[in-house]
Design a protein around this nucleic acid. Structure first.
Lengths: 234, 234
DNA sequence: ACAAAAGTGTTACCCGTACACCCATGC
DNA sequence: GCATGGGTGTACGGGTAACACTTTTGT
């Protein structure tokens, strides 16, 4: 027996929803699609899964091709498979939710793809069902970040607590009390205070912190509860 | 332009991980696979996605064929796509996580598929990567039930609080204090007390409750926190 | 009468929230 | 010296966990 008979075979693509944070706004990395149909329309970064690779391998390959980055936070989001989602041919898409440090990316811009960081609240129309994918990814970001410390993945190795707070506020479009926020964050024991300060964003300067990688990995699945009442989200 | 050129096309299957609860144990609905390869080995219920249907449509169709049930709780779990997961031919599998009331099912057994309810802790070897799928589904069940009131989907329309507690205890392999448990459950306002009692499992009898469907739908996305410390899970 | 499970109330502690002032520095 | 953002402490309230006894009824 070499094949199953009488069944439809389909193209399988991988699309990456790539989040970044520039210190003020949440952004998505989008590209101008390089081939028909819809050439030159905005699109998520994606590509077809090859015959000999799994989904995660394909997503990693595609991400590396676009950003040069490896070892970033990536997890499968959802499989989209409506029959008419790609007008050319039946194509299913396995989407990946990706968080990267926007500054690391800047160092190795790859212009081959005409990629740009675009603020989440100023997204253009995207091809196919990519807008729906982005919406789902954003919901997942909010959902998951309320419970797990994933947002550190969007920050540089060294960051300050005010920076971290700005990030949470951007994700939830809300404001938090800085006293309670810093106490809560520090009480997790995930942060290691550095000796130096960030002197760019204030006169006094704010101490840098690093993630305690060991505790981060150990505690990742603990329910952290950074965000008190998810009903607060605007 | 009618096709993308130079790409691999693959079979796409849907597999359902179907949970049930018989009052004592969590069970999975498994079938003896009816075709080669691995004919007569235990397997999840699944089938190929047809050319004109989406994943959810396919999963619904397959579930109905097996159990006769419609309108049950179902959500996409994960897309499995390792190149060698099916030795016959490259096949990706979109898995669906399904919760059904085991008693409703009993009324319409469909023996065509040699389906059986098998306790989660006595699972036989399953074909391909189905064991991995089950493991992931079980993790999702524990994760999600700690936050959302999904376990009601496993119970009949009318159920007692001791029954509900047994279910939570089965899911988390833990025991809970019945006073705290019932207070917590009732405080959600999701339950409507009935006038009649279940007299089978005790001499005194326990009052039946029904779900308040309206509140259930409204509150589904609230974080409920039935399970105090997920670290408690054995 | 006794066994078996249902049902209910109180207390103590911890965590989360609200809230206001001082500190360090560049200009 | 003043404006800007960084950093800290306290008091109150709500919710969760620990804990034991009474009720009902079938045998």
């Amino acid at each position: 027996m070499t094949r199953y008979s009488g069944q439809s075979r389909m193209l399988v693509a991988v699309d990456c929803i790539i989040f970044g944070f520039d210190g003020e706004e949440l952004k998505l990395l989008l590209i101008k699609r390089g081939f028909e149909p819809q050439k030159n329309k905005w699109s998520l970064m994606g590509g077809f899964v090859q015959g000999d690779e799994g989904f995660e391998t394909a997503a990693t390959r595609i991400l590396k091709k676009l950003t040069g980055l490896e070892g970033v936070y990536m997890e499968q989001l959802f499989a989209f498979g409506e029959p008419a989602r790609d007008p050319v041919e039946r194509t299913v898409s396995i989407t990946y939710f990706t968080l990267i440090d926007i500054n690391q990316y800047k160092l190795q811009i790859n212009d081959e793809y005409h990629a740009e960081w675009i603020a989440l609240d100023k997204l253009p129309d995207l091809i196919f069902d990519h807008t729906e994918m982005v919406k789902m990814a954003q919901e997942k970001l909010r959902y998951k970040a309320a419970i797990h410390p994933i947002l550190f993945e969007l920050l540089p190795l060294k960051f300050t607590i005010p920076q971290l707070q700005l990030l949470y506020e951007a994700v939830y479009d809300a404001t938090f009390d800085k006293r309670n926020f810093s106490r809560k964050v520090l009480s997790t024991g995930l942060l290691i205070k550095q000796k130096d300060k960030d002197r760019l964003s204030s006169k006094r300067g704010a101490f840098y912190f690093k993630l305690d990688k060991r505790k981060y990995n150990a505690k990742f699945n603990a329910f952290l509860n950074f965000v008190t009442d998810p009903g607060n989200i605007k």
